[in-house]
Design a protein around this nucleic acid. Structure first.
Length: 467
RNA sequence: GGUCGGAUGGCCGAGAGGCGAGGCAAGGGACUGCAAAUCCCUCUACACGGGUUCAAAUCCCGUUCCGACCUCCA
């Protein structure tokens, strides 16, 4: 088997993945700031790194997967005012919606999902270390800043130069206690009415970046294998995480992975552009497994241009695969056992080249369908197994119990259709006064526990307990 | 201004010096009571202008257009 090669944002090259500890992989993914419901861009990130995780697990690694929840920040406080809720109630509300979205897309739950507010102690410890090192300073106003000009290296991930950065817009140069306008806040002094935690430098709340360094350190140690997140996190978030952690003497992440956007008309989804597509809205159009198939089908570093047509086409393609697996199961009398073939393996090991892997699935599908025509059970089993193996790595195995509930929803849709069909026949029979036939339909349905009522708007059916 | 990415056939979407990934759509055919499903065949592309090379979608230089980040972001 070939070795896994992954892109590293830090080097901008694809290189062989070597875990720090043989057989084990530690991953930290920057999760959501829970201030609004997720759009499909958010869950694309989760799906992409879930595929990475499943691939590593299949490859035999013991994977520790940490994905944080940022449950305190400026926007959460703002939204709490707008929604007239406690900030912590608002954060919990949206955290649950995120969790539900992840679950509907069959994203494996993280090994641990730390919240920022639960790690203030670790953040204070980190700040104490940084101040003792001379890397950070507390100017006395309750803020704590990292002094970026003192860093041995900074902005290595994004490849920028400190002096080339545009000055921060939010800094009031006259009132700022920053030694340099580009210094960033590790900790923010509490304003009146805002939540705060006591620290040696005054009451306040975490700056955005500090939490991830503290939590990554807490759960993964001073050095870990992979740090992942969206492209927009490269700067400032990940740069600042590196700055803090390295200034504290940690090695931090060995490799950086960043996923690209879901775009509309070439532009990144964002609430300010009004072009966001919330997950629950999309899930009224396609099933979770189909949305996952769509989001996972593009390479994780490529922009995915959203359109309803593309989503629909993708869903149709997935149903075709699913249909083959169902027919194969009928013929074989059992679910095909998942098998990962060499082509899929080679594609995934090449920086998770899912699109290349899909070409292999297409081939399996074509050959598998031909095998059904030919009645060649061995070939049916082989191709069905290889397809199922690929789908299970992609998190789109239709026989995965995590999709069972959803499948039963589809069953009820199908049931509804069948009954509607029967009711049309019954109506037709009644119109030609063939009551023997119409009553036979009604009695037959009743025997199955389905009660028919004739109303002014037409027949209505409901399920009753079978006696 | 700085940094980074992109432009591939009607559409989606890979590839990164040499055998035209793959899918969808379209057209033709096989099968079929009709339809569906399935299979087979066909068509076709690398934004533009130079250059390097035996060979360029791929490397180099330049140009155009699109997008991302520059302290809120997946």
């Amino acid at each position: 088997m070939s070795a896994l090669n992954l892109y590293d944002t830090a080097t901008r090259e694809v290189g062989e993945f070597q875990p720090l500890i043989p057989g084990e992989v530690s991953i930290y993914v920057c999760g959501a700031t829970v201030q609004a419901a997720p759009h499909i861009g958010h869950v694309r990130s989760a799906v992409n790194f879930d595929i990475l995780r499943r691939w590593l697990i299949w490859s035999g690694y013991e994977v520790t997967f940490i994905r944080n929840v940022t449950d305190i920040d400026d926007k959460i406080l703002q939204k709490a005012v707008i929604e007239k809720m406690q900030w912590w109630a608002l954060a919990m509300k949206y955290e649950r919606i995120f969790s539900a979205a992840y679950a509907s897309l069959n994203v494996l739950p993280p090994t641990y999902e730390p919240r920022a507010t639960g790690h203030v102690t670790q953040m204070i410890e980190l700040m104490e270390t940084l101040i003792a090192n001379g890397a950070a300073y507390a100017p006395g106003n309750g803020d704590v800043y990292l002094e970026v000009r003192k860093l041995k290296r900074y902005l290595t991930l994004s490849g920028q130069k400190l002096d080339d950065l545009q000055p921060a817009g939010d800094v009031d140069a006259n009132n700022s206690k920053k030694r340099d306008p580009r210094d960033f806040a590790l900790w923010k002094a509490a304003k009146i009415g805002e939540p705060s935690w006591p620290t040696p430098w005054g009451a306040g709340r975490p700056g955005w970046h500090l939490e991830c360094s503290a939590m990554a350190h807490t759960y993964l140690g001073e050095a870990f294998d992979i740090h992942a997140g969206g492209l927009d996190l490269i700067f400032p978030h990940h740069e600042n995480e590196i700055a803090q952690s390295e200034a504290a003497g940690h090695k931090f992440a060995n490799r950086w992975l960043h996923n690209a956007w879901v775009t509309q008309s070439g532009e990144k989804m964002s609430k300010s552009l009004g072009n966001t597509l919330q997950v629950d809205v999309i899930l009224q159009r396609v099933r979770g497994i189909e949305l996952r198939w769509y989001l996972g089908s593009a390479h994780y570093r490529s922009m995915l241009e959203y359109s309803e047509a593309a989503l629909d086409e993708s869903a149709v393609a997935f149903r075709r695969i699913e249909h083959f697996l169902n027919r194969a199961t009928e013929i074989l009398g059992t679910h095909p056992a998942p098998v990962v073939n060499d082509a899929f393996c080679a594609a995934m090991n090449d920086d998770l080249a899912v699109p290349a892997a899909l070409a292999g699935i297409s081939e399996n599908l074509r050959v598998g369908n031909q095998a059904i025509t030919d009645g060649d059970k061995d070939a049916i089993g082989k191709n069905a197994s290889e397809i199922r193996g690929a789908l299970s790595i992609l998190g789109c195995d239709p026989f995965d119990p995590n999709y069972t509930l959803e499948n039963s929803t589809n069953l009820s849709d199908a049931l509804n259709g069948v009954i509607t069909l029967a009711l049309k026949e019954r109506t037709a029979a009644r119109e030609r006064k063939d009551f023997a036939a119409s009553d036979a339909i009604r009695d037959g349905l009743l025997e199955l526990g389905i009660t028919i009522e004739d109303t002014a708007q037409g027949p209505r059916w409901s399920m009753t307990e079978k006696s």
